[in-house]
Amino acid sequence: METIASRPLSLTKTPFHYCPGCLHGVAHRLIAEAVDENGLRNVMTGIAPVGCSVFAYKFFDFDMAEAAHGRAPAVATGIKRARPEMHVFTYQGDGDLAAIGTAEIIHAANRGEHISVFFVNNAIYGMTGGQMAPTTLPEMKTTTSPYGRKVDDMGHPIRMCELMATLVAPYYIERVSLLSPADIIKAKKAVAKAIKYNKEERGFTFVEIISTCPTNWGIDPIKARDWAKDNMLPFFKPNCFRDRGEGVE
């Protein structure tokens, strides 16, 4: 019998603790597969954020650091500069990266740090129980925008890829989603490209991954994906914003 799929070596045997229907597990797997495929498992290190994926350091089977909320790009900078022989990525959610950690992500990108950033955007704070995120859509209800996000009062959602694309240094910026099997295959390509560029020391790579939060959105996982397709993707359009390896500016 031929094994055609198995657990990536870069994942530990620790079961994911995520809610039913959550897509963090899929995102973790894509990263782990890409690390395995690039033969980087022994020189890879990841930075876990604060948020639902705070325990990511238990799930990846290589050295990991857990950062303070939003500080993962600074921690990644410190590790990469201290040990250039290591390959470093951060894994961050929308609250972590686009609210409390805005300064760290912008400046790590602007310095062109040789790290990869995987930014999982589900438009809500999951771990703390469904509060408004910087990427929460207009009129979307959360526990801290119970009457819907009023843009005149609470501001508009932030499009991080578009913001990052104003910077000169980043080498690769792409937004993908995990909302269907076809989307996951596309996402895998983007994640694998970021890891490959990381291996080749091309520069700063940034992949935004549109995801869902069935638990805090209060809708079942399949409907959550449909909801995200109908509501998130028109605002957060999947796109390759920059790929210097392919001449995309």
């Binding site: 930075i47 650091a65 950062a67 303070a68 500080r71 600074a74 921690v75 990644a76 900078t77 410190g78 590790i79 990469k80 500069r81 201290a82 040990r83 290591m86 300064a103 760290e104 912008i106 400046h107």
Partner: peptide, 17 residues
């Protein structure tokens, strides 16, 4: 660094290495 906050977290990373 972009801030004192970032600087100490870079220290955290480098010390962790």
């Amino acid at each position: 660094a972009e801030s004192e906050v970032a600087a100490i977290n870079m220290v955290y990373g480098a010390a962790g290495a």
